[in-house]
Design a binder for these strands. Structure first.
Lengths: 209, 209
DNA sequence: TTATGATCCGAGGGATTCCTCGGGATTTGT
DNA sequence: ACAAATCCCGAGGAATCCCTCGGATCATAA
């Protein structure tokens, strides 16, 4: 067996009909993944759920992993662009409102599909491998560092480390909440507390106040 | 096949020799899980790595899932007892040192085996199902609420919610770091920043200062 | 219309996995 | 020392799963 070597690489659909099946497969994959988990999400089941023959599935995707890699890619892009769009038209007068806007946008981005978010999140082999996820993270980190340098007085604290902790905390808390209590994403309480925590964290330079 | 129904439930080892194989299996399972991931961690491979026949494995574990459920149980207990032991003999004079001690103990608990921690963490079906993990979390949450009520002045903020956010943040950040940059667990920087963030978060009652 | 290419299909091969079963080896109790 | 209990073993059955392949069906352009 030579699974890793795809001798018949994925074909890109040209006709409208083909694009429809392509989408159907990806959406079915998302639904099955959320409902049954990665292991039970067999290619046969995905094809069936998409209303498509198994042959058609392998016409466009070289193997099972590729389906979820692309699904992950899609979700990351959707989340990231949604976040940016919302943040672009949000108030950013001072540090406090900037932080609040960012937290809100970040929550709303995940809120588009919390179940898919947690399901994809737990596909370690994929998310780790994907360099595009790292790229987004890096971009976000640099953006945060610049915001800190221009809006916050950190004294002698390392802005890069502070940014890392802020991002990790925000990211991790929101994703964890999406995992364990998705309904909490809809209440403003999470946003309030997260924003408060982050703001206080960077609002003065000395460890004691 | 009736995999879910274990007609021959797990036998408990009585002789010393049997306990040795029982341990060998669990330790092999941990090693294989960390090295190859859950899917590649086949029962055959675990038995082989443990230096044990596959039959012996199924003498004590009804199925593959059970092995990792027990492994998860063990790790949770080890982490939790380690945390409590360290915290018991740590300074807790005021809120700030209490927070710092807690953070340090929490980090050290995970530091016992960061790789196993992240590997087990991503076994959703297990960790979610396991009620004992929830129990530990609840106990921790109540403990935190009491600490907040006696040491912090939160004003009209809900101590339960604040505790939730603190726990989620701490838990999530540490686990995420263990995932993405385990060497960071060894530097004091993480402890410093986490403790600072948490302390400021609960150090005064109004949103503005 | 007809030819060419794109799309769709699903039975089944090859590979792998989980787990059983019958019996042999070792320890324990008497 | 002998029987019973406990422990160990690994070949192989049953169940999937991933993916291929040859050919049917549909779309488009000449």
């Amino acid at each position: 067996m030579a699974r890793r070597i795809s001798r018949k690489p994925r074909k890109t659909p040209t006709q409208a009909r083909a694009k429809a099946t392509w989408n159907a497969i990806l959406e079915a994959a998302a639904r099955v993944l959320v409902q049954r988990g990665y292991e039970k999400a067999t290619t046969d089941r995905i094809a069936e759920r998409a209303g498509v023959g198994i042959g058609s599935l392998y016409e466009y995707f070289p193997n099972k992993e590729a389906i979820f890699a692309i699904l992950n890619l899609r979700w990351n892009e959707e989340r990231w662009s949604g976040f940016q769009a919302e943040l672009a038209s949000a108030p950013q007068d001072d540090l406090q409102t900037l932080i609040r806007s960012t937290v809100r946008a970040r929550i709303n981005a995940t809120r588009r599909n919390p179940r898919l978010n947690s399901a994809l999140r737990n596909l370690i082999p994929l998310s780790v491998t994907q360099p595009q996820a790292r790229a987004i993270y890096e971009e976000f980190a640099e953006h945060t560092v610049r915001a800190l340098q221009s809006h916050a007085r950190l004294g002698d604290r390392d802005p890069r480390l502070v940014a890392q902790v802020m991002l990790h905390a925000t990211h991790a808390v929101i994703d964890n909440v999406a995992d364990m209590a998705p309904e909490l994403l809809d209440s403003p309480a999470l946003e309030d507390e997260l924003a408060l925590m982050l703001y206080r964290y960077v609002s003065s330079s000395s460890a004691r106040d």
